[in-house]
Nucleic acid binder design. Structure first.
Lengths: 214, 214
DNA sequence: CAGGCACTACGTATTTCTACGTAGTTAAAA
DNA sequence: TTTTAACTACGTAGAAATACGTAGTGCCTG
């Protein structure tokens, strides 16, 4: 197997230095190039489209989805590993949807990082332990929920939920959204039915812990 | 001014490498030594008690308070900068109480890191912009709250709040705590008065975002 | 076009929550 | 010892939330 070229895109100084330092010493890696922004990454990728890209979840200048599209214009199947700082489930989902090949937590070990790069270079996928455990748990959770997998909320429901989380009562929300208080309560009702939740407290907790609200 | 010795304590590989890489290149720094755990840090500190310590907020093997005490046994006024990954206000408060000299966010720049080390080496304090901004905001918030600074909750109140967050109603909580439902409502009432909060939703949000509950 | 989904709205009844009080006991602090 | 704080408990009243329905309109899709 040929040695692997790696492109790092990370706008935080310390972390970028850390990645470069570790990967420079990795035997499987031949070249390491580090940039700060999404724009620079795309530029660099044009010059060496056979690289494995390591991208920070909070990369400056783009979200993962757009970044992937830009990379795909250069080369149809870019190899991208996302490194994340948070345990935000939404971000993971978005990244997977965007088609990334790996997803590691910021606190991964040198070993995890290296093996992930090797796997992705081979065309496989790579997830850090905590991420794959989390995915497994979610899968079980979903299955438990009577099989109905997509408990996605509608726009309006999300809107209402957001206002509930912000501490507004139903009448207040009604005024804000220019709808009837009853309608707000219908939305509350539907939210709770969908989420198998029985009161406001649990609803707020759900929103803060399992959605991008908050 | 003499060059500064730096001790790094960070259990995450990438970040530790990053710090070492950056500080090795810093002109003001003469020596850099990096360890993984609190225990190792104390050991290393005994050998060079004139070092500035850079400690990860999630350092393995100790909390900040105990770590500071251990360092103080070696040398009465250890110079410690905490690097944090989160925006957790509680952790900041605990760190300040423990007597650390600096507090930086993980996403600080190379410049911020270097100048913080210089400041702390001089015996001054150093906080990253976001941290000092946040402290300023909190100060204003506190001032607004009619001067009453300590809005700490009692044990019982914390207990009740926890159960509210878990989605239990007042009657349920009453049964769990073997007290009257009215008493639970009194606690709710007191909680909301203390926190200037007007309903359950805001209470849950407060608990999840600003306390260790959840 | 028919069917499904989202959004809207209402009725009724019950439960829970919130506001604003009072007050006894106990344990710790001044 | 006096005082303070915490925990307990209750009354009354009104506001809000929850449970259980029904139903019209618009939009998109098969």
């Amino acid at each position: 197997m040929n040695k692997i070229k790696v492109l790092i895109a990370e706008n935080f100084d310390v972390y970028r230095h850390g990645l470069r330092s570790i990967l420079s010493e990795a035997p499987a890696v031949s070249e390491v190039y580090a940039v700060r922004s999404a724009k620079d990454l795309v530029q660099a990728y044009k010059k060496s489209p056979d690289s494995v890209c390591i991208v920070s979840s909070n990369i400056e200048g783009s979200n993962i989805h757009d970044l992937m599209q830009r990379l795909e214009k250069v080369q149809p199947a870019p190899k991208v590993i996302v490194l994340t700082y948070s345990t935000d489930v939404n971000h993971l989902n978005q990244s997977l949807k965007a088609g990334v090949n790996g997803y590691l937590m910021k606190n991964c070990t040198t070993g995890e990082l290296e093996s992930a790069i090797k796997e992705v270079a081979k065309g496989k996928q790579a997830f850090s332990k905590s991420v794959s455990q989390m995915m497994a748990n979610k899968y079980v959770d979903q299955a438990k929920k009577t099989g109905s997998v997509s408990n996605k909320l509608t726009k309006r429901e999300t809107e209402v939920l957001k206002l509930i989380v912000e501490g507004h009562t139903s009448p207040e929300i009604a005024k804000m959204l220019f709808i009837s208080p009853r309608t707000v309560e219908t939305h509350r009702s539907n939210l709770m039915n969908k989420l198998k939740i029985k009161n406001t407290a649990a609803l707020v907790r759900y929103a803060l812990e399992k959605t991008e609200i908050g």
